[in-house]
Design a protein around this nucleic acid. Structure first.
Lengths: 220, 220
DNA sequence: GCCTACTGCGTACGTCGTTCGCGGTTAGAG
DNA sequence: CTCTAACCGCGAACGACGTACGCAGTAGGC
Protein backbone atom coordinates (compact mmCIF):
# COMPACT_ATOMS: atom_id res chain seq x y z
CA UNK A 1 0.00 0.00 0.00
CA UNK A 2 1.81 3.08 -1.18
CA UNK A 3 1.06 6.40 0.42
CA UNK A 4 2.29 8.48 -2.48
CA UNK A 5 1.95 9.42 -6.14
CA UNK A 6 -1.85 9.48 -6.62
CA UNK A 7 -3.96 12.55 -6.00
CA UNK A 8 -5.84 11.82 -2.79
CA UNK A 9 -6.51 8.97 -0.41
CA UNK A 10 -9.98 8.56 -1.81
CA UNK A 11 -8.84 7.72 -5.32
CA UNK A 12 -5.70 5.84 -4.41
CA UNK A 13 -5.80 2.06 -4.93
CA UNK A 14 -6.09 0.44 -1.55
CA UNK A 15 -3.56 -2.30 -2.06
CA UNK A 16 -1.01 -3.61 -4.52
CA UNK A 17 -0.96 -7.23 -5.62
CA UNK A 18 2.59 -8.36 -4.98
CA UNK A 19 3.76 -8.08 -1.39
CA UNK A 20 2.52 -9.38 1.94
CA UNK A 21 -0.90 -8.21 3.01
CA UNK A 22 -0.96 -5.03 5.14
CA UNK A 23 -1.30 -5.49 8.87
CA UNK A 24 -3.52 -2.48 9.35
CA UNK A 25 -6.55 -0.89 7.75
CA UNK A 26 -7.18 2.76 7.04
CA UNK A 27 -10.28 2.57 9.21
CA UNK A 28 -8.25 1.40 12.21
CA UNK A 29 -5.67 4.12 11.68
CA UNK A 30 -8.35 6.79 11.50
CA UNK A 31 -10.01 5.36 14.60
CA UNK A 32 -6.71 5.45 16.49
CA UNK A 33 -6.24 9.08 15.54
CA UNK A 34 -9.77 9.95 16.59
CA UNK A 35 -9.24 8.21 19.91
CA UNK A 36 -6.20 10.38 20.59
CA UNK A 37 -7.89 13.55 19.39
CA UNK A 38 -10.87 12.93 21.64
CA UNK A 39 -8.60 13.06 24.68
CA UNK A 40 -5.86 15.52 23.87
CA UNK A 41 -7.12 17.41 20.87
CA UNK A 42 -5.48 17.55 17.47
CA UNK A 43 -2.11 18.31 19.04
CA UNK A 44 -2.09 14.82 20.52
CA UNK A 45 -2.41 13.31 17.06
CA UNK A 46 1.22 12.91 16.08
CA UNK A 47 2.45 10.24 13.72
CA UNK A 48 4.37 8.60 16.53
CA UNK A 49 1.41 8.64 18.90
CA UNK A 50 -1.00 7.18 16.36
CA UNK A 51 1.57 4.56 15.46
CA UNK A 52 2.06 3.66 19.12
CA UNK A 53 -1.72 3.31 19.47
CA UNK A 54 -1.53 0.67 16.75
CA UNK A 55 1.58 -0.88 18.25
CA UNK A 56 3.75 0.02 15.29
CA UNK A 57 6.10 2.84 14.32
CA UNK A 58 5.67 6.21 12.66
CA UNK A 59 7.43 5.25 9.46
CA UNK A 60 5.02 2.37 9.00
CA UNK A 61 2.11 4.79 8.91
CA UNK A 62 3.56 6.34 5.79
CA UNK A 63 2.80 3.10 3.96
CA UNK A 64 -0.88 3.97 4.41
CA UNK A 65 -0.91 7.74 4.43
CA UNK A 66 1.12 10.27 2.47
CA UNK A 67 1.30 12.88 5.21
CA UNK A 68 -0.16 13.92 8.52
CA UNK A 69 -2.67 16.14 6.73
CA UNK A 70 -3.95 13.14 4.85
CA UNK A 71 -4.40 11.29 8.12
CA UNK A 72 -6.42 14.25 9.35
CA UNK A 73 -8.55 14.13 6.21
CA UNK A 74 -9.16 10.48 6.94
CA UNK A 75 -10.17 11.20 10.52
CA UNK A 76 -12.51 13.99 9.49
CA UNK A 77 -14.33 11.85 7.00
CA UNK A 78 -14.56 8.98 9.45
CA UNK A 79 -16.09 11.29 12.03
CA UNK A 80 -18.51 12.62 9.43
CA UNK A 81 -19.93 9.14 9.14
CA UNK A 82 -21.60 9.93 12.46
CA UNK A 83 -23.88 12.38 10.71
CA UNK A 84 -27.32 11.12 9.93
CA UNK A 85 -30.35 12.90 8.54
CA UNK A 86 -33.74 11.64 7.46
CA UNK A 87 -35.89 13.99 5.40
CA UNK A 88 -39.41 14.71 6.59
CA UNK A 89 -42.34 15.47 4.39
CA UNK A 90 -43.96 17.93 6.78
CA UNK A 91 -41.24 20.53 6.79
CA UNK A 92 -40.07 23.12 4.29
CA UNK A 93 -36.50 23.60 3.10
CA UNK A 94 -35.65 26.03 5.87
CA UNK A 95 -36.85 23.68 8.56
CA UNK A 96 -34.88 20.85 7.04
CA UNK A 97 -31.70 22.90 6.88
CA UNK A 98 -32.16 24.02 10.48
CA UNK A 99 -32.43 20.39 11.54
CA UNK A 100 -29.33 19.51 9.56
CA UNK A 101 -27.51 22.45 11.10
CA UNK A 102 -28.42 21.39 14.61
CA UNK A 103 -27.34 17.79 14.26
CA UNK A 104 -24.16 18.91 12.55
CA UNK A 105 -23.41 21.28 15.37
CA UNK A 106 -23.91 18.59 17.98
CA UNK A 107 -21.47 16.44 16.04
CA UNK A 108 -18.89 19.23 16.10
CA UNK A 109 -19.47 19.88 19.79
CA UNK A 110 -19.06 16.20 20.61
CA UNK A 111 -15.77 16.08 18.70
CA UNK A 112 -14.26 19.56 18.99
CA UNK A 113 -11.04 18.56 17.22
CA UNK A 114 -13.07 18.58 14.01
CA UNK A 115 -13.17 22.35 14.21
CA UNK A 116 -9.39 22.50 14.03
CA UNK A 117 -9.06 19.79 11.42
CA UNK A 118 -11.60 20.82 8.82
CA UNK A 119 -9.83 23.94 7.56
CA UNK A 120 -6.93 21.85 6.28
CA UNK A 121 -9.13 19.48 4.34
CA UNK A 122 -9.51 20.67 0.77
CA UNK A 123 -10.19 17.12 -0.37
CA UNK A 124 -13.52 16.14 1.17
CA UNK A 125 -14.14 12.43 1.60
CA UNK A 126 -17.30 10.51 0.71
CA UNK A 127 -19.02 11.13 4.04
CA UNK A 128 -18.32 14.84 3.87
CA UNK A 129 -19.74 14.91 0.37
CA UNK A 130 -22.73 13.01 1.71
CA UNK A 131 -23.37 15.84 4.16
CA UNK A 132 -23.20 18.30 1.30
CA UNK A 133 -25.62 16.19 -0.66
CA UNK A 134 -28.10 16.20 2.20
CA UNK A 135 -28.06 19.97 2.27
CA UNK A 136 -28.64 20.16 -1.47
CA UNK A 137 -31.47 17.67 -1.25
CA UNK A 138 -33.17 19.74 1.41
CA UNK A 139 -33.20 22.63 -1.04
CA UNK A 140 -34.30 20.56 -4.01
CA UNK A 141 -37.71 22.20 -4.25
CA UNK A 142 -36.23 25.66 -3.93
CA UNK A 143 -35.98 27.62 -7.16
CA UNK A 144 -32.49 29.09 -6.95
CA UNK A 145 -29.25 28.73 -8.84
CA UNK A 146 -27.19 25.74 -7.79
CA UNK A 147 -24.26 28.07 -7.36
CA UNK A 148 -26.38 30.16 -5.05
CA UNK A 149 -27.33 27.11 -3.02
CA UNK A 150 -23.76 25.93 -2.69
CA UNK A 151 -22.65 29.33 -1.54
CA UNK A 152 -25.34 29.24 1.09
CA UNK A 153 -24.28 25.78 2.23
CA UNK A 154 -20.70 26.97 2.55
CA UNK A 155 -21.72 29.90 4.69
CA UNK A 156 -24.03 27.66 6.68
CA UNK A 157 -21.23 25.28 7.50
CA UNK A 158 -19.08 28.18 8.61
CA UNK A 159 -21.76 29.44 10.95
CA UNK A 160 -22.27 25.98 12.36
CA UNK A 161 -18.58 25.69 13.12
CA UNK A 162 -18.61 29.16 14.58
CA UNK A 163 -21.33 28.30 17.08
CA UNK A 164 -19.86 24.90 17.80
CA UNK A 165 -16.54 26.52 18.63
CA UNK A 166 -18.03 28.96 21.09
CA UNK A 167 -20.01 26.13 22.65
CA UNK A 168 -17.03 23.81 22.98
CA UNK A 169 -14.63 26.40 24.40
CA UNK A 170 -16.53 28.65 26.81
CA UNK A 171 -15.35 32.12 25.86
CA UNK A 172 -13.00 32.80 28.74
CA UNK A 173 -11.73 36.10 27.47
CA UNK A 174 -9.19 37.97 29.51
CA UNK A 175 -10.10 41.63 29.36
CA UNK A 176 -6.97 42.75 31.19
CA UNK A 177 -5.97 45.13 28.44
CA UNK A 178 -9.17 47.16 28.77
CA UNK A 179 -8.84 50.86 29.41
CA UNK A 180 -12.09 52.38 30.76
CA UNK A 181 -11.33 55.68 29.07
CA UNK A 182 -10.77 54.27 25.61
CA UNK A 183 -13.52 51.67 25.79
CA UNK A 184 -16.37 53.16 27.79
CA UNK A 185 -19.14 50.99 26.39
CA UNK A 186 -17.19 47.81 26.80
CA UNK A 187 -16.36 48.69 30.37
CA UNK A 188 -19.97 49.49 31.10
CA UNK A 189 -21.09 46.26 29.53
CA UNK A 190 -18.66 44.15 31.51
CA UNK A 191 -18.80 45.88 34.89
CA UNK A 192 -22.56 45.93 34.62
CA UNK A 193 -24.61 42.86 35.28
CA UNK A 194 -23.04 39.44 35.09
CA UNK A 195 -23.07 37.93 31.61
CA UNK A 196 -25.77 35.44 32.50
CA UNK A 197 -27.01 32.65 30.26
CA UNK A 198 -26.70 33.12 26.51
CA UNK A 199 -29.80 33.94 24.55
CA UNK A 200 -31.90 30.88 23.95
CA UNK A 201 -31.99 29.56 20.42
CA UNK A 202 -29.41 32.07 19.29
CA UNK A 203 -28.10 29.42 16.95
CA UNK A 204 -31.40 28.65 15.31
CA UNK A 205 -32.22 32.32 14.96
CA UNK A 206 -28.87 32.99 13.32
CA UNK A 207 -29.25 30.11 10.92
CA UNK A 208 -32.81 31.06 9.98
CA UNK A 209 -31.92 34.69 9.46
CA UNK A 210 -28.88 33.88 7.40
CA UNK A 211 -30.43 31.30 5.11
CA UNK A 212 -33.57 33.35 4.77
CA UNK A 213 -31.58 36.37 3.70
CA UNK A 214 -29.40 34.37 1.38
CA UNK A 215 -31.99 32.25 -0.37
CA UNK A 216 -35.46 33.48 0.30
CA UNK A 217 -37.59 36.18 -1.40
CA UNK A 218 -36.57 38.91 -3.81
CA UNK A 219 -33.39 39.53 -5.79
CA UNK A 220 -31.37 36.95 -7.63
CA UNK B 1 12.06 42.68 30.78
CA UNK B 2 10.69 39.40 32.03
CA UNK B 3 8.45 37.35 29.82
CA UNK B 4 6.87 35.37 32.61
CA UNK B 5 4.85 35.44 35.81
CA UNK B 6 2.22 38.09 35.04
CA UNK B 7 -1.08 37.31 33.35
CA UNK B 8 -0.78 38.73 29.85
CA UNK B 9 1.50 40.91 27.78
CA UNK B 10 -0.90 43.79 28.10
CA UNK B 11 -0.69 44.03 31.87
CA UNK B 12 2.94 43.08 32.24
CA UNK B 13 5.32 45.87 33.23
CA UNK B 14 7.34 46.79 30.19
CA UNK B 15 10.69 47.01 31.84
CA UNK B 16 12.42 46.41 35.14
CA UNK B 17 14.55 49.04 36.80
CA UNK B 18 17.83 47.31 37.44
CA UNK B 19 19.55 45.93 34.36
CA UNK B 20 20.72 47.38 31.05
CA UNK B 21 18.04 48.77 28.78
CA UNK B 22 16.54 46.29 26.31
CA UNK B 23 17.83 46.39 22.76
CA UNK B 24 14.46 45.73 21.19
CA UNK B 25 10.89 46.93 21.51
CA UNK B 26 7.72 44.85 21.45
CA UNK B 27 6.54 46.87 18.48
CA UNK B 28 9.62 45.90 16.46
CA UNK B 29 9.24 42.26 17.39
CA UNK B 30 5.60 42.25 16.34
CA UNK B 31 6.51 44.02 13.10
CA UNK B 32 9.18 41.43 12.33
CA UNK B 33 6.68 38.65 12.89
CA UNK B 34 4.13 40.35 10.67
CA UNK B 35 6.73 40.81 7.96
CA UNK B 36 7.42 37.08 7.97
CA UNK B 37 3.75 36.14 8.12
CA UNK B 38 2.97 38.37 5.16
CA UNK B 39 5.31 36.33 2.99
CA UNK B 40 5.13 32.78 4.26
CA UNK B 41 2.05 32.67 6.43
CA UNK B 42 1.93 31.86 10.11
CA UNK B 43 4.11 28.81 9.60
CA UNK B 44 7.01 31.08 8.70
CA UNK B 45 6.75 32.81 12.06
CA UNK B 46 9.08 30.72 14.17
CA UNK B 47 10.94 32.04 17.15
CA UNK B 48 14.23 31.55 15.35
CA UNK B 49 13.05 33.27 12.19
CA UNK B 50 11.67 36.27 14.03
CA UNK B 51 14.85 36.48 16.05
CA UNK B 52 16.97 36.33 12.91
CA UNK B 53 14.88 39.13 11.42
CA UNK B 54 15.94 41.23 14.42
CA UNK B 55 19.52 39.97 14.21
CA UNK B 56 19.34 38.20 17.54
CA UNK B 57 18.62 34.69 18.78
CA UNK B 58 15.49 32.82 19.72
CA UNK B 59 16.27 32.67 23.40
CA UNK B 60 16.56 36.44 23.50
CA UNK B 61 12.96 36.74 22.34
CA UNK B 62 11.84 35.05 25.51
CA UNK B 63 12.98 38.10 27.43
CA UNK B 64 10.15 39.95 25.74
CA UNK B 65 7.53 37.29 25.17
CA UNK B 66 6.47 34.33 27.28
CA UNK B 67 5.65 32.03 24.38
CA UNK B 68 5.04 31.90 20.68
CA UNK B 69 1.31 32.28 21.27
CA UNK B 70 1.96 35.52 23.06
CA UNK B 71 3.99 36.74 20.11
CA UNK B 72 1.03 35.90 17.91
CA UNK B 73 -1.27 37.85 20.21
CA UNK B 74 1.08 40.77 19.84
CA UNK B 75 1.08 40.51 16.06
CA UNK B 76 -2.70 40.28 15.92
CA UNK B 77 -3.20 43.38 17.99
CA UNK B 78 -0.57 45.26 16.02
CA UNK B 79 -2.36 44.37 12.79
CA UNK B 80 -5.67 45.42 14.31
CA UNK B 81 -4.27 48.92 14.60
CA UNK B 82 -4.86 49.09 10.86
CA UNK B 83 -8.59 49.15 11.46
CA UNK B 84 -10.20 52.55 11.27
CA UNK B 85 -13.83 53.57 11.39
CA UNK B 86 -15.50 56.95 11.53
CA UNK B 87 -19.17 57.01 12.45
CA UNK B 88 -21.59 58.80 10.14
CA UNK B 89 -24.71 60.55 11.18
CA UNK B 90 -26.73 59.63 8.10
CA UNK B 91 -26.75 55.89 8.57
CA UNK B 92 -28.58 53.58 10.94
CA UNK B 93 -26.97 50.92 13.12
CA UNK B 94 -27.21 48.26 10.46
CA UNK B 95 -25.51 50.39 7.86
CA UNK B 96 -22.75 51.25 10.30
CA UNK B 97 -22.16 47.61 11.17
CA UNK B 98 -22.09 46.66 7.50
CA UNK B 99 -19.43 49.28 6.88
CA UNK B 100 -17.44 48.02 9.86
CA UNK B 101 -17.79 44.48 8.58
CA UNK B 102 -16.54 45.41 5.15
CA UNK B 103 -13.46 47.25 6.29
CA UNK B 104 -12.70 44.47 8.73
CA UNK B 105 -12.96 41.91 6.02
CA UNK B 106 -10.61 43.84 3.75
CA UNK B 107 -8.15 43.92 6.62
CA UNK B 108 -8.37 40.14 7.00
CA UNK B 109 -8.04 39.62 3.27
CA UNK B 110 -4.98 41.83 3.12
CA UNK B 111 -3.35 39.88 5.95
CA UNK B 112 -4.67 36.34 5.70
CA UNK B 113 -2.46 35.05 8.51
CA UNK B 114 -4.80 36.85 10.88
CA UNK B 115 -7.41 34.21 10.14
CA UNK B 116 -5.12 31.51 11.47
CA UNK B 117 -3.85 33.53 14.39
CA UNK B 118 -7.02 34.88 15.91
CA UNK B 119 -8.45 31.61 17.20
CA UNK B 120 -5.54 31.25 19.62
CA UNK B 121 -5.96 34.70 21.05
CA UNK B 122 -8.16 34.58 24.13
CA UNK B 123 -6.52 37.71 25.48
CA UNK B 124 -7.51 40.54 23.14
CA UNK B 125 -5.20 43.53 23.05
CA UNK B 126 -6.18 47.19 23.15
CA UNK B 127 -6.68 47.53 19.41
CA UNK B 128 -8.86 44.44 19.27
CA UNK B 129 -10.92 45.83 22.12
CA UNK B 130 -11.12 49.07 20.19
CA UNK B 131 -12.72 47.21 17.30
CA UNK B 132 -15.23 45.70 19.71
CA UNK B 133 -15.95 49.14 21.08
CA UNK B 134 -16.68 50.49 17.62
CA UNK B 135 -19.24 47.77 17.05
CA UNK B 136 -20.92 48.52 20.35
CA UNK B 137 -20.95 52.21 19.60
CA UNK B 138 -22.65 51.58 16.28
CA UNK B 139 -25.46 49.87 18.19
CA UNK B 140 -25.68 52.48 20.91
CA UNK B 141 -29.09 53.70 19.84
CA UNK B 142 -30.43 50.19 19.54
CA UNK B 143 -32.65 49.04 22.40
CA UNK B 144 -31.34 45.56 23.11
CA UNK B 145 -29.59 43.81 25.94
CA UNK B 146 -25.84 44.37 26.02
CA UNK B 147 -25.43 40.64 26.20
CA UNK B 148 -27.49 40.32 23.07
CA UNK B 149 -25.36 42.88 21.29
CA UNK B 150 -22.12 41.21 22.26
CA UNK B 151 -23.37 37.87 21.08
CA UNK B 152 -24.25 39.47 17.76
CA UNK B 153 -20.81 41.04 17.49
CA UNK B 154 -19.19 37.68 18.17
CA UNK B 155 -21.20 36.01 15.44
CA UNK B 156 -20.53 38.95 13.14
CA UNK B 157 -16.80 38.59 13.58
CA UNK B 158 -17.06 34.90 12.82
CA UNK B 159 -18.93 35.55 9.61
CA UNK B 160 -16.43 38.19 8.58
CA UNK B 161 -13.60 35.74 9.07
CA UNK B 162 -15.55 33.10 7.21
CA UNK B 163 -15.93 35.27 4.12
CA UNK B 164 -12.42 36.59 4.36
CA UNK B 165 -11.10 33.04 4.40
CA UNK B 166 -12.99 32.00 1.29
CA UNK B 167 -11.82 35.18 -0.42
CA UNK B 168 -8.19 34.70 0.50
CA UNK B 169 -7.98 31.02 -0.41
CA UNK B 170 -10.04 30.37 -3.55
CA UNK B 171 -11.94 27.20 -2.74
CA UNK B 172 -9.98 24.71 -4.79
CA UNK B 173 -11.83 21.65 -3.64
CA UNK B 174 -10.85 18.28 -5.00
CA UNK B 175 -14.01 16.33 -5.61
CA UNK B 176 -12.19 13.14 -6.52
CA UNK B 177 -14.07 11.12 -3.92
CA UNK B 178 -17.43 11.84 -5.49
CA UNK B 179 -19.59 8.92 -6.48
CA UNK B 180 -22.35 9.91 -8.96
CA UNK B 181 -24.68 7.28 -7.55
CA UNK B 182 -24.41 8.33 -3.95
CA UNK B 183 -24.32 12.05 -4.65
CA UNK B 184 -26.57 12.70 -7.63
CA UNK B 185 -27.31 16.34 -6.90
CA UNK B 186 -23.70 17.22 -6.25
CA UNK B 187 -22.66 15.56 -9.46
CA UNK B 188 -25.33 17.38 -11.40
CA UNK B 189 -24.31 20.65 -9.85
CA UNK B 190 -20.65 20.20 -10.67
CA UNK B 191 -20.88 18.65 -14.09
CA UNK B 192 -23.41 21.27 -15.03
CA UNK B 193 -22.40 24.79 -15.85
CA UNK B 194 -19.06 26.10 -14.71
CA UNK B 195 -19.13 27.65 -11.25
CA UNK B 196 -18.90 31.16 -12.63
CA UNK B 197 -18.47 34.28 -10.53
CA UNK B 198 -19.78 34.26 -6.98
CA UNK B 199 -22.97 36.08 -6.23
CA UNK B 200 -22.41 39.78 -5.96
CA UNK B 201 -22.68 41.28 -2.52
CA UNK B 202 -23.09 37.87 -0.97
CA UNK B 203 -21.14 39.15 1.98
CA UNK B 204 -23.29 42.21 2.58
CA UNK B 205 -26.47 40.21 2.17
CA UNK B 206 -25.28 37.63 4.68
CA UNK B 207 -24.27 40.27 7.21
CA UNK B 208 -27.54 42.18 6.83
CA UNK B 209 -29.62 39.03 7.11
CA UNK B 210 -27.74 37.79 10.11
CA UNK B 211 -27.69 41.00 12.12
CA UNK B 212 -31.25 41.73 11.18
CA UNK B 213 -32.38 38.36 12.41
CA UNK B 214 -30.32 38.56 15.55
CA UNK B 215 -31.09 42.10 16.66
CA UNK B 216 -34.03 43.50 14.79
CA UNK B 217 -37.79 43.33 15.42
CA UNK B 218 -39.78 40.92 17.56
CA UNK B 219 -38.77 38.48 20.28
CA UNK B 220 -36.31 39.12 23.07
C1' DG C 1 12.51 -20.63 -9.01
C1' DC C 2 13.35 -16.10 -9.80
C1' DC C 3 12.09 -11.44 -10.03
C1' DT C 4 9.52 -7.71 -8.56
C1' DA C 5 6.57 -5.23 -5.86
C1' DC C 6 5.18 -4.76 -1.61
C1' DT C 7 5.50 -5.07 3.66
C1' DG C 8 7.22 -3.40 8.46
C1' DC C 9 10.68 -0.87 10.67
C1' DG C 10 15.20 1.18 12.51
C1' DT C 11 17.57 5.17 11.84
C1' DA C 12 18.49 9.71 10.74
C1' DC C 13 17.91 14.67 9.31
C1' DG C 14 16.29 19.13 10.01
C1' DT C 15 13.17 22.13 12.50
C1' DC C 16 10.44 23.39 16.06
C1' DG C 17 9.22 25.62 21.03
C1' DT C 18 11.29 26.14 25.16
C1' DT C 19 14.72 26.01 29.27
C1' DC C 20 18.95 26.75 31.66
C1' DG C 21 22.90 28.96 32.99
C1' DC C 22 26.71 31.81 31.96
C1' DG C 23 29.17 36.54 31.66
C1' DG C 24 28.35 41.26 31.44
C1' DT C 25 25.72 45.58 32.66
C1' DT C 26 23.11 48.73 35.30
C1' DA C 27 20.74 51.05 39.12
C1' DG C 28 19.35 51.38 43.72
C1' DA C 29 20.78 50.39 48.80
C1' DG C 30 24.03 51.08 52.47
C1' DC D 1 31.84 54.95 46.84
C1' DT D 2 31.04 49.92 47.12
C1' DC D 3 28.09 46.20 46.90
C1' DT D 4 24.54 43.49 45.29
C1' DA D 5 20.49 42.17 43.19
C1' DA D 6 17.99 42.47 39.14
C1' DC D 7 18.14 42.52 34.48
C1' DC D 8 20.19 41.93 29.65
C1' DG D 9 21.89 38.96 25.43
C1' DC D 10 23.14 34.61 24.13
C1' DG D 11 25.11 29.75 23.41
C1' DA D 12 23.88 25.25 24.11
C1' DA D 13 20.90 21.78 24.96
C1' DC D 14 16.44 18.94 25.46
C1' DG D 15 12.60 16.57 23.78
C1' DA D 16 9.19 16.21 20.22
C1' DC D 17 7.78 16.83 15.77
C1' DG D 18 7.08 15.52 10.37
C1' DT D 19 9.30 13.07 7.10
C1' DA D 20 12.94 10.42 3.97
C1' DC D 21 15.84 6.51 3.18
C1' DG D 22 17.30 2.01 3.03
C1' DC D 23 17.28 -2.55 4.67
C1' DA D 24 15.42 -7.43 5.46
C1' DG D 25 11.71 -10.21 4.70
C1' DT D 26 7.47 -11.88 2.16
C1' DA D 27 4.27 -13.20 -1.44
C1' DG D 28 2.30 -13.23 -5.99
C1' DG D 29 3.20 -13.37 -11.43
C1' DC D 30 6.01 -15.34 -15.01
Amino acid sequence: MTGGQHGSIWTRPQRGARGPSPEHRLADIAAAGIRLAATGGLAAVSMRAVAAELKTTASTLYRYVASRDELLDLMVDTAMAGFAHTPRSDEDWLGALVRIAESTRSLYVAQPWLLDAVPSSSAPGPNTLCWFEHCLQAMAALDRTTLRKMEAVGVLNGVIMLFARSAAAPTAIDFAAMDPVRHPRLTAALTGSSPGPPTVDLFERAVRALLGGLLDDRAG
